[in-house]
Amino acid sequence: MVQIKLAWDEGADQALGLPAYQTSGAAGADVRANLPDGAVVIAPGARVLIPTGLKMEIPVGYEIQVRPRSGLALKHGIMLVNSPGTIDSDYRGPVGVIMMNAGEIAFDVTHGMRIAQLVLAPVVQADFYIAEDLSETARGDAGFGSSGEN
């Protein structure tokens, strides 16, 4: 098991607790909105950065992916704009979640609400270079939507 060091952001409500896995087989740990000053309303079509109250130290060779919660998406049309978001191992600032309301009515993000999932993932960096030519494949340069009808 990989350990992730956490620190509370200034003014955060520490009583909310740390990100937590809801089941023994869960890939993502739920993180909560840390809004000690009250709820934030997301109007239809709007996006808002919601604080988690946390900072973290992720080991080199890993990232944390910030992913949406399916229940919020299905029931309310709430999504994460840049899903999955990435928290890099060298970032030490406050962790926020960019939420967007794709629904038809305003949505209240309340203090302590589970707003996203944090998934630890390994990172492999590439060595990019220019080559004289690229190998051939059956697909070739066929682009968007070219791999099938559906």
Results as ranks from 00 to 15, higher is better:
residue 78 I to V: 12
residue 78 I to Y: 05
residue 79 M to C: 08
residue 79 M to D: 14
residue 79 M to Q: 12
residue 79 M to S: 15
residue 80 L to A: 03
residue 81 V to E: 12
residue 81 V to S: 13
residue 81 V to T: 15
residue 81 V to Q: 10
residue 81 V to H: 09
residue 82 N to V: 01
residue 82 N to F: 06
residue 82 N to T: 06
residue 83 S to Q: 13
residue 83 S to G: 05
residue 84 P to K: 13
residue 85 G to C: 06
residue 86 T to A: 11
residue 86 T to V: 06
residue 86 T to M: 10
residue 87 I to E: 05
residue 88 D to W: 07
residue 88 D to T: 01
residue 89 S to K: 05
residue 89 S to Y: 14
residue 89 S to A: 15
residue 89 S to R: 06
residue 90 D to C: 06
residue 90 D to P: 00
residue 90 D to Y: 07
residue 90 D to G: 08
residue 91 Y to W: 08
residue 91 Y to M: 03
residue 91 Y to V: 01
residue 92 R to T: 15
residue 93 G to A: 08
residue 93 G to F: 07
residue 94 P to H: 11
residue 95 V to D: 01
residue 96 G to T: 15
residue 97 V to M: 07
residue 97 V to D: 04
residue 98 I to K: 04
residue 98 I to H: 02
residue 98 I to E: 02
residue 100 M to Q: 15
residue 101 N to V: 03
residue 101 N to G: 02
residue 101 N to Q: 00
residue 101 N to M: 03
residue 101 N to D: 04
residue 102 A to C: 12
residue 102 A to S: 09
residue 102 A to H: 09
residue 102 A to W: 03
residue 102 A to Q: 13
residue 103 G to Y: 09
residue 104 E to I: 00
residue 105 I to S: 12
residue 106 A to T: 01
residue 107 F to V: 05
residue 107 F to D: 04
residue 107 F to L: 10
residue 107 F to P: 04
residue 107 F to H: 12
residue 108 D to Y: 13
residue 108 D to C: 04
residue 109 V to E: 13
residue 109 V to K: 14
residue 109 V to Q: 13
residue 112 G to S: 07
residue 112 G to H: 03
residue 113 M to A: 13
residue 113 M to V: 02
residue 114 R to I: 01
residue 114 R to T: 00
residue 114 R to D: 06
residue 115 I to A: 07
residue 115 I to S: 05
residue 115 I to Y: 04
residue 115 I to M: 07
residue 115 I to F: 07
residue 116 A to H: 06
residue 116 A to Q: 01
residue 117 Q to Y: 10
residue 117 Q to I: 03
residue 117 Q to C: 03
residue 117 Q to M: 03
residue 117 Q to G: 09
residue 117 Q to F: 07
residue 118 L to I: 01
residue 118 L to G: 06
residue 118 L to P: 08
residue 119 V to D: 11
residue 119 V to W: 08
residue 119 V to Q: 11
residue 120 L to D: 05
residue 120 L to G: 07
residue 121 A to S: 15
residue 121 A to M: 12
residue 122 P to N: 11
residue 122 P to Q: 13
residue 122 P to Y: 00
residue 123 V to C: 09
residue 124 V to H: 11
residue 124 V to M: 13
